[in-house]
Simulated scan of single mutants.
Amino acid sequence: MLVDWSLTSNFLGLFKLWKALQFYAGFSIFMLYVYQLPIEFSSMLQWIADFVGLFKICSTSEWTEICSSVSLVLFYIMVCTSFITIGLILFKDFS
Rank of each mutant, 00 (worst) to 15 (best):
K19E: 06
A20F: 08
F23Y: 10
F23Q: 05
F23L: 11
A25P: 00
A25E: 10
G26N: 00
F27E: 07
S28C: 07
I29M: 08
I29E: 09
F30R: 10
L32D: 03
Q36K: 02
Q36R: 02
L37V: 12
L37N: 12
I39N: 00
M44N: 14
M44Y: 03
W47K: 14
W47E: 01
I48M: 05
A49T: 01
D50E: 05
V52G: 03
G53M: 01
L54K: 02
F55C: 11
F55G: 04
K56Y: 07
S61Q: 04
S61N: 05
E62H: 08
E62Y: 13
W63I: 12
T64D: 08
E65D: 13
I66M: 07
I66K: 06
I66N: 06
I66D: 07
C67K: 07
S69V: 01
S69G: 03
S71H: 06
S71Y: 08
L72A: 11
V73R: 03
V73C: 09
L74G: 13
F75T: 03
F75E: 02
I77W: 14
I77M: 10
M78H: 14
V79Q: 00
C80A: 15
C80W: 10
S82R: 11
T85Y: 12
I86K: 00
I86R: 15
I86C: 02
I89P: 05
L90A: 08
L90E: 15
L90V: 15
F91H: 11
F91P: 12
